[in-house]
Nucleic acid binder design. Structure first.
Length: 545
RNA sequence: GCGCCUGUAGCGCAACGGAUAGCGCACUAGCCUCCGAAGCUAGUGGUGCAGGUUCAAUUCCUGCCAGGCGCACCA
């Protein structure tokens, strides 16, 4: 079984281009695409089109030249049984057609080795820290957090699948201004409950949940100065429950308070001071982020002696590297966009490669009811929460929905519509395919036989379905290179479509035993791929619906 | 004013710079004596505007128009 058919092909194409006197920049950027349509084969390269100008020949001529040599080389290589045809098509694309033998061996590989067969040998094994959500413990999680939670969780799953050592982390902002305000908010609500007349400031936390916390605090006789921490812990337990119900689990909850206590901030500052990246001005301490491309220098210690948000963050990211992580991924909301350059600057100042820090901006998820946008202010407590979305559309639909759009694009959904569309949500389309397969396997008198003759699968829909199965690994690598899991949901819908089309035209269980066995193998392979994909998305696999 | 994101069919969205721009909803016409009709088949209908780069632009660049979000010694 040839696992790296892509890599081997690229190697052969590369060798074939040696005599062509081509632009080395183009040759270095040799890659294979999935053709846009089934009739254009299984893999495709546009190299002839791109070489057309420098070689001063038509792309079709170049394609023919390349193909002629390639055909000879392939005949002499280990790929010879797996590539059945190479054709120049369209404007000059070179299209590769897999042989049926390749399809059948690959399908058998999936059935024999389950999801292991779907993993590609990327050679990637470095340790990655992916930090996401990290919402302040001052209220329930919003839909914006919900989107970040799913995108982060799914991306982590995919990286893990591809061989990375992944750790998921939630940075807990459990000290500072907002915790103080949270404490004061609780204190005021407590006085109110006791019958005092209070003037509740506008910038305090308005949500009704503060009353609940106040009642609880009174029962437990919490001292006033401890109200902030008490409230934060109370809310944190709510957040953890929300994430748990959303099937998002973190490996580490990293406390800012602990970070401050540890003295790591001072140590990082000492280092920066030695390097000359810190200076005093107007009574404040500034980080010279402009030395690393930031627009302006940033304050790290305010003139009142307290830290800005950046200070612990510098130490936090330094600590991430010191814990041995080679690649840091942060998922942030769009409001933090302007913050990227200063954090990258600090990473560079601490002697790390800023390219090893990937900041992914998860664009806003806004929610509306009946076309009217809902407000999203944590302090006012009027926003739509993750909990409400979970209650209304369910975990599977919510997770899939949040993954369905490119992470860098806005996501807007009307709760009324989302509820209405629940039965039509694409997640059901995919789950339905899984349930149908399960149902057939359950009802079948014939057992799955590993020595089945797969070459009986000759129908167009059967081969298309296998073809689709083989694209899974390719899709995983797209998710990696784009650092965005959304392509997985697109793929799963296409895979489900291929299955439904096959199912509709051809019976799996029939009087023909050999064919029944072959088709059972085909749907078992499909089941494995759908299961693998849905698991990565964190969506359940229903045997029945 | 500056920055980020987005303008694709009536609505919601796809298309890692490629081939005849796809899919769902809605609408129209079909398909269950047969493994699940939450499915399948066919039809209607579209790239905001103006330039540029490229062999090739929905995609990249510039300007304009429209919408969303953000621009602290807050976190």
């Amino acid at each position: 079984m040839k696992k790296n058919i892509q890599k081997e092909l690229i190697k052969l194409i590369d060798q074939g281009l040696v005599g062509l006197n081509a632009d080395s920049n183009i040759l270095d950027d040799l890659y294979l695409d999935l053709p846009t349509q089934e009739r254009f084969g299984d893999l495709s390269t546009n190299i002839a089109l791109r070489l057309s100008k420098t070689l001063k020949k038509s792309s079709r001529q170049i394609a023919d030249l390349i193909i002629e040599k390639l055909k000879r080389d392939i005949l002499r290589s280990s790929l010879k049984d797996y590539i059945s045809e190479i054709k120049a098509e369209g404007a000059g694309f070179i299209n590769f057609y897999f042989s049926e033998r390749y399809f059948f061996e690959a399908l058998k590989d999936i059935i024999d080795n389950q999801k292991e067969a779907l993993k590609s040998n990327t050679g990637k094994s470095s340790s990655v820290l992916i930090e996401f959500v990290s919402a302040n413990p001052t209220g329930s999680l919003s839909v914006a957090h919900a989107r970040q939670a799913v995108v982060g969780d799914c991306l982590a799953n995919i990286l893990d699948f591809l061989g990375f050592k992944v750790s998921k982390e939630y940075y807990l902002n459990d000290e500072g201004n907002q915790i103080n305000i949270l404490g004061k908010s609780t204190q005021l609500r407590l006085m109110e409950l006791k019958g005092d007349k209070v003037d509740f400031p506008q910038d305090y936390y308005q949500g009704d949940y503060i009353y609940d916390i106040a009642k609880e605090a009174e029962q437990r006789k919490i001292k006033d100065e401890e109200l902030g921490d008490f409230a934060a812990n109370y809310i944190l337990s709510i957040i953890k429950k929300e994430l748990d119900d959303f099937r998002v689990k973190f490996d580490c909850w990293y406390s800012q308070k602990e970070l401050t206590k540890s003295g790591k901030i001072e140590k990082a500052f000492e280092f920066l001071k030695k390097k000359g990246f810190l200076y005093e001005q107007d009574g404040a301490l500034w980080f010279k982020s402009t030395a690393f491309g930031d627009d302006k220098d940033r304050v790290v210690i305010k003139s009142d002696g307290t830290y800005t948000y950046l200070a612990p963050d510098i130490a936090y990211h330094d600590d991430k590297y010191k814990r041995g992580f080679k690649w840091l991924i942060n998922l942030w909301g769009p409001d933090h966009h302007g913050y990227i350059s200063r954090l990258k600057a600090s990473v560079a100042a601490l002697g790390r490669d800023p390219a090893s820090l990937s900041v992914i901006i998860v664009q806003l998820a806004t929610i509306s009811r009946g076309g009217k946008p809902a407000q999203m202010s944590t302090r006012r407590g009027e926003y739509i929460t993750l909990r409400e979305v979970l209650d209304e559309v369910g975990c599977d639909a919510a997770r899939f929905f949040f993954l369905m759009r490119r992470t860098s694009s806005h996501l807007d959904f009307d709760l009324d519509i989302a509820k209405k569309q629940t039965a039509e949500n694409p997640v059901y389309y995919v789950q339905y395919a899984y349930a149908r397969i399960s149902s057939i396997l359950r009802n079948s008198q014939v057992k799955l036989n590993k020595d089945v003759d797969l070459s009986l699968l000759k129908e167009k829909e059967e081969l298309n379905l296998i073809r689709k199965l083989l694209q899974f690994t390719y899709i995983m690598n797209i998710c990696l290179s784009t650092q965005d899991p959304y392509m997985l949901t697109v793929y799963l819908q296409e895979l489900a479509e291929s299955f439904h089309k096959f199912y509709d035209l051809h019976r799996v269980l029939s009087d023909n035993l050999a064919l029944t066995q072959a088709r059972l193998a085909l749907i078992e392979g499909t089941r494995i791929v759908i299961a693998t994909g849905l698991e990565l998305a964190g969506v359940l696999l229903p045997e029945q619906m």
